[in-house]
């Protein structure tokens, strides 16, 4: 037993605080918007130039001038505002966005994050990921605990080129929640049916405490 994608997204949604402006990455992080707890108001930023991202449009109501950072058609909300890319990354770099929830290929115990390229494979670019992890108040990574070969993605040191150095605050995987602390990672929470021994055994990184 462990958390599935939706349970991971629901757990990540517990990180949100009332009044926050947040940026959600592509993949499992996008699902977080389905689990925003009741009574918590958050405003979603789309780094191509929008605060207050709404849901996908109804069929026939798509607007080519209204897309998210994944280039999907979306809608606006009553509180929506638009701005240019320099302003958008100004608020990211300036720390005005409280949190980013992102996917990752690898995370290291010192908070290093790799999620933009695999040497020898086709590289599409980092988009806004490097700006986000360097700039926002808090970085939460949501990802599978192991890669498809069953190897830990939570490492002592990243093997892939970095997106950011010492930038991750918290890691949420199918096995639980880990915080980046002095000397390594600290277990915050275990997923349903996962024991501490199992989590330790599945994790290459140093677990302290």
């Amino acid at each position: 037993m462990a958390w599935d994608r939706n349970q991971m997204a629901a757990r990540a949604a517990q990180e949100l605080q009332d009044g926050w402006y947040v940026n959600l990455g592509i993949g499992i992080p996008t699902l977080v918007s389905n689990y925003i707890p009741e009574g918590i108001e958050v405003t979603l930023q789309s780094e191509n130039g929008m605060l207050g991202m709404g849901p996908f449009p109804f069929e026939g109501e798509e607007d080519p001038d209204l897309i998210n950072a994944g280039k999907q058609t979306i809608t606006e909300l009553p509180q929506t505002s638009y701005f240019d890319s320099a302003t958008s990354f100004g608020m990211i770099r300036g720390g005005k966005i409280a949190m980013a929830i992102l996917g990752a290929m690898e995370v290291a115990e010192n908070g290093d994050l790799a999620n933009w390229m695999i040497p020898g494979k086709l590289v599409k670019g980092m988009g806004g990921a490097m700006d986000l992890v360097a700039g926002v108040g808090r970085v939460v990574v949501v990802m599978d605990h192991a890669n498809k070969h069953g190897e830990s993605k939570v490492l002592k040191e990243c093997t892939l080129p970095l997106t950011g150095k010492s930038v991750v605050d918290r890691i949420i995987t199918g096995m639980g929640v880990l915080d980046v602390v002095e000397g390594g990672l600290k277990i915050v929470e275990l997923a349903d049916g996962v024991s501490e021994e199992e989590l330790r055994a599945a994790t290459e990184a140093t677990i302290v405490g």
Partner: peptide, 26 residues
């Protein structure tokens, strides 16, 4: 990085030949 590109364009237009950013450090 996307924000660096946006700021490089903005800076050029504002007569700023260079700027320091945390993005991409390390």
């Amino acid at each position: 990085p996307q924000g660096t590109l946006a700021e490089r364009l903005r800076a050029g237009g504002c007569g700023i030949p260079g700027f320091y950013t945390k993005t991409g450090v390390g």
